[in-house]
Amino acid sequence: MASQALPARGARLGRAVTPGRVHVPLVPGQRQREDDDGATVRAVVLALPGGDPLSTRRRSPVAAAMIWPLARHLVRAGAAGGVAAHVVHYRFRGWNGGHAHPAEDAEWAVGEAVRRYGDVPVCLVGMDMGGRAALQAAGHPAVTSVVALSPWLPADGEPEPVKQLIGRHVLIAHGTDDESTDPELSYRLAERAKKVNREVCRFEVHSAGHTLHQHRAEVFALTTDFVLGSLLDRPYARPVADALAAPPPLGLRMPLAAGFGRSLRS
């Protein structure tokens, strides 16, 4: 990959995830602190889709479509608190070894969000390869929290960095029946991260596969509770608070209970 000439292509933010509203593109150089209806934006969610280990093809519309419903759910739940969201469109579909293109694109996207909305907290929410990108891009000063769902983590090579997670709120969720990405690898990463940052928790979604579709309602509720709690300084639901407070392995193998979120306003 290092010797291959890569296509000249830039990452970009997708249109704002604002159901029922029309997205108005920014004038070059404009700093957008309000959404399209004039509401003040107080926090931003950047949704990072999955991808392939190696590919210089354009982004995958299928992967973007998979994370869009979660981004929309987060906007609906956080509208009163001024939460805006965008799906990040990568330059390339692949991670591409040491290039780590999605992580670079995620970090660029954080800077772009700050340029548009001003000094607001940012949460990175990634699925699959996007989960790894979210974790690696967490070092940007504007990032306050990270959610990694079924993160793709290679079994070989150097251990994933964790120092960039210091000072961030971190949630990892993984299905126990995931056959695409190894849940044990995300546990090991969470264990290492917990040693340098107490604000790390990990939930196990029992009987769920890679997409977590079997427990979509619970996963959406868990993510929403964590994201809005970290961005808007709201109290976490009891299971999340307990997971953050518990030492390993308890707080890193917390089972996601069936029906989680039914009593929560989302």
Results as ranks from 00 to 15, higher is better:
residue 197 N to V: 08
residue 26 L to Q: 12
residue 36 D to F: 09
residue 62 V to E: 05
residue 131 G to N: 08
residue 250 L to Q: 15
residue 104 E to F: 06
residue 51 G to H: 06
residue 79 A to F: 03
residue 38 G to C: 11
residue 133 A to P: 03
residue 71 A to F: 01
residue 108 W to L: 14
residue 21 R to C: 07
residue 58 R to K: 09
residue 42 R to A: 15
residue 16 A to W: 02
residue 171 L to F: 13
residue 210 H to T: 09
residue 132 R to W: 14
residue 244 L to A: 11
residue 159 P to N: 04
residue 48 L to K: 15
residue 107 E to S: 09
residue 131 G to Q: 07
residue 120 V to K: 10
residue 136 Q to K: 13
residue 216 R to A: 09
residue 232 L to H: 02
residue 32 Q to R: 15
residue 256 L to V: 06
residue 144 T to E: 04
residue 197 N to A: 13
residue 64 A to N: 11
residue 158 E to F: 08
residue 83 V to I: 10
residue 36 D to Q: 13
residue 20 G to H: 05
residue 145 S to G: 15
residue 111 G to R: 14
residue 226 F to G: 02
residue 80 A to Y: 10
residue 40 T to S: 15
residue 75 V to D: 09
residue 140 H to C: 07
residue 217 A to D: 12
residue 137 A to Q: 01
residue 75 V to K: 02
residue 79 A to Q: 13
residue 163 K to R: 11
residue 39 A to V: 08
residue 14 G to K: 00
residue 142 A to I: 15
residue 28 P to N: 07
residue 261 G to V: 07
residue 240 V to Y: 05
residue 212 L to Y: 04
residue 21 R to Y: 04
residue 74 L to Q: 00
residue 174 H to N: 11
residue 250 L to N: 09
residue 10 G to M: 12
residue 180 S to Y: 10
residue 236 Y to D: 10
residue 115 R to Y: 05
residue 236 Y to V: 03
residue 40 T to L: 14
residue 143 V to F: 00
residue 206 H to T: 15
residue 125 V to T: 00
residue 143 V to N: 09
residue 116 R to K: 03
residue 220 F to Q: 12
residue 117 Y to S: 12
residue 204 E to Y: 02
residue 37 D to K: 06
residue 129 M to P: 04
residue 131 G to R: 04
residue 172 I to T: 13
residue 255 P to A: 00
residue 42 R to S: 11
residue 139 G to I: 02
residue 78 G to P: 06
residue 99 H to K: 01
residue 215 H to L: 11
